[in-house]
Amino acid sequence: MRRFLASALVLSSALPAFAAESKGGFPPFNATTFAGQLFWLALTFGTLYLLMSRVALPRVGAILSEREATIESSLAQASKAQAAAEAEAQGLEQALAKAKANAQAIAQEARTKSAREIDAKRSAVEKDLAAKMVAAEASINETKAKAMANVEDIAKDAVSAIVEQLAGKAPTAAAVTKAINAARGE
C-alpha cells in the first residue's frame, strides 16, 4: 500500500518535471558514486567486523556464560540446601515421634503407679472405716442394750404406778416382771 502510494505520488510529481525533459538523475543508479561508496562501506564494515569479533562479542559471550554458570551453581547450592533441610526435617519428625512415644510411656507408667497408690490408700481407708463401723455397731448395740434395760425398769415402774392408780395397791416386783415378760413373749 505504501509502495503503491509512493509510486503513484512519484509519478504525479515527476510528470511536470519530465514534461520539460529535464532529468534529475536517480542517485542510487548514478554509477560515478559507486566506487566511493564501496570503498567506505568496505572500510566501515571491516572495522565493525573486526571490533565485534575481537572485542565486543567475546566479552558479551563471556558475561552471558558467566551469568549462566553463576545461576547454575546457585541453583545447585539451593537444591543441595533444600535436600539437607528436608533430611533435617525428617530427622526432626522422627525425634518428635520418638519423644511422643516416650512421653506416652511415661504417662502410662505414672498412671499405673498412681492407680496402685490410690488402691492401696483406698483399701487402708476401707479397713479403717470397717473397723470403725464394727466399733460403732458394738457401741450402738451396747447403748441399745442399756436402753432396753432401762426400758424394762421404766416399764416396771410405769406398770406399778398404773396398777397402783387403778387397783389402789402396788403390785409385787415379781408379778410385774412376770407380766412384762408375758407381754414381751407375745
Binding site: 509502495r3 509512493a6 509510486s7 512519484v10 509519478l11 515527476a14 519530465f18 532529468k23 534529475g24 538523475g25 536517480f26 543508479f29
Partner: peptide, 15 residues
C-alpha cells in the same frame, strides 16, 4: 516481490 515491481517502475522513470 512488490518491491521489485516498484523498482521496475523507478527504473522506467529515471533510468
Amino acid at each position: 516481490l512488490g518491491i521489485f515491481c516498484f523498482v521496475v517502475a523507478l527504473v522506467l522513470l529515471f533510468v
